[in-house]
Design a protein around this nucleic acid. Sequence first.
DNA 1: GAATCAATTCGATACTTATCGAATTGTAAT
DNA 2: ATTACAATTCGATAAGTATCGAATTGATTC
Lengths: 99, 99
Amino acid sequence: MDTKKMAKIFKALSNPNRLELYLKIAEAHEASFETGGECSVADIISCLNIGAPTISHHIKELSNADLITTEKRGKFLICRVNEKMVTEVSKMLTLQQPE
Amino acid sequence: MDTKKMAKIFKALSNPNRLELYLKIAEAHEASFETGGECSVADIISCLNIGAPTISHHIKELSNADLITTEKRGKFLICRVNEKMVTEVSKMLTLQQPE
DNA sequence: GAATCAATTCGATACTTATCGAATTGTAAT
DNA sequence: ATTACAATTCGATAAGTATCGAATTGATTC
């Protein structure tokens, strides 16, 4: 991964509200027994105190950085973490060699 | 670590030039046999194509986010990665439990 | 098809910030 | 003390962005 792409990923996580979005999605991913590993935008809106347009914008940034994937299901937009990307970034941060 | 602090760390890495600064310092850290694990601001200036004032600013941001530590030695400012912080962030990113 | 709810788009605003050149401080060498 | 070099501070500018309210699209239900 080049540094430009890497910087984009960190930028996506650099806003406190957006980071909370990511963490919420990541928590749903961890608690996959209860949640199925997924999390709708509506869930996020109801638990964070910011407007829907802003959240929509943030979701797009996370998705654009390939940190999450999204899937439209009926009225809802379902979000999941892109586990592969996240672990890759985590390793680059600590300069670990890819396997 | 709270999300605000975490966001600050990611913000520090969200600028491509600043990320290159960090990676340069981190590489010196890895290659500690040759470099002693350290890296001066002068080194960085000579290998990146941006002005000294900008670099000074970036160094301060990295340091402010506790990603690096600095130490004045003679005319030079010596930078090192704060390994502890980096591994902690890396774990939070992937939601690993602290040990 | 009217009403409802999820989500997005649009336009505007206020705020932040990356970068620069010029000037300054601080340290070391001559 | 003068010169030289490392780094910082200052002031300015241009670009980016987080957020909002209003309006819109798209899907579901009645």
